[in-house]
Design a protein around this nucleic acid. Structure first.
Lengths: 210, 210
DNA sequence: CTTCAAAAATGAACGAACTCAATTCTTTTC
DNA sequence: GAAAAGAATTGAGTTCGTTCATTTTTGAAG
């Protein structure tokens, strides 16, 4: 059976995460003070630092949960992908993008990405970076599956091309969250243009002259 | 003739930039206080804020100068590129990467990239973002030049593929600066693998059967 | 040269993230 | 069940970026 201490610990973690998540979304990351989160979670400010190394790491923990959902959402599509490279990639990327603003504001994404670059050694920064790698790996998996079905050139390297596709979709997402005025629709359009162009290069080549 | 006020202004800007640049490199961005920079530049802390909106913006101003040099260095190669897509791209990217640590530490790059994402509206953040766009445009130019010489497929879209190549090299650079232990050599190798794979897809297709 | 207006420099004061020595609570031991 | 050990909480204190009212400096006008 679980001891009191252990239960309290889990409960406080949950309360801090819920309070921070709600406040960050409602008031913005910078406007929320650790004291506000602590008050909402019914602990002291110092206690927050027993659970999360910094305010930024607390944010990364929240953002990581969203990324985990995105990876989960992508699994189904990788298992039974559309039978065209462009359509398959466009649909996977659409899943990623459409999930991204479910629980997180653009400001939260900006901060999270910034922190994961600037403080890469922090516990949840490492975790977030791993999740990014898993997303990239998922794109690679999709390309592998497509290659197996003969939907790509035979000489395609799915691991390398998957990384490139991920870099591209990630860079566009950064530009998207950097611009509060940019609508999701524009992100989709920009990404589709890139994806379709890349997919055209990945399709099987017409047969060679003998 | 230039007034005293104008000359002093230019001089103080220069002194602040030089002091900050030297101190950031020597002691690290976080370890340097605005007061330290002010003291080294022989002004007060408040004066620094008459010249740069935040400590981060001051850093971005310094990093931007380096990026401008990189763009300049890339010009020559775009004007007379090697006669192979892979070699041309690899050499351009090598120029970018090799210039990057001339005056800046990895920590400075991390901070700069983080700030440009997290505070995109600041004066030098806008400037830095524009420089990034110019780098991307330079890759596009290179691909255009190669296409004109018949070194790529005829249906290649140089603007879109250039962006993709830039996203990829930029993403790898982020991973490079995030890991203090990663040597430049590994960055080159990772980038070459991606570039060569992409270049293989961009080369002219063998002729079709009639 | 004196006066006035505007621009710039200054440093004290503020706010918020983070630290840490003291305290309180939980578990274990006898 | 009492007491000792250890774990976790607490909030006052420190630090540093940033702001702003005041003072100083520069340039223009008479």
């Amino acid at each position: 059976m679980t001891g009191l201490r252990e239960r309290q610990k889990a409960d406080r973690t949950r309360r801090i995460l819920e309070a921070a998540s709600r406040l960050f979304r409602a008031q913005g990351y910078d406007a929320v003070r650790i004291e506000d989160i602590a008050a909402a979670a019914e602990v002291s400010a110092g206690t927050c630092y027993n659970y999360f190394s910094t305010k930024g790491d607390l944010l990364l923990s929240i953002v990581s949960m969203e990324v985990e959902e995105v990876i989960e959402a992508g699994r189904a599509l990788v298992l039974s992908p559309p039978s065209d490279v462009a359509r398959a990639l466009v649909e996977l990327i659409r899943i990623y993008y459409d999930h991204s603003l479910n629980y997180l504001s653009k400001e939260m994404w900006r901060k999270a990405m910034a922190i994961s670059i600037e403080a890469p050694a922090t516990p949840f920064s490492r975790h977030y970076t791993q999740l990014d790698a898993m997303l990239s790996a998922q794109v690679c998996e999709l390309l592998s599956a497509l290659k197996l079905r003969g939907l790509t050139r035979g000489d395609l390297d799915p691991a390398v091309l998957g990384q490139i596709v991920f870099s591209a979709l990630n860079q566009l997402f950064i530009e998207f969250v950097k611009d509060d005025a940019m609508p999701m629709h524009d992100l989709h359009r920009a990404s589709e243009a890139q994806t379709i162009a890349l997919a055209a290069l990945m399709r099987p080549q017409p047969e060679r002259m003998a």
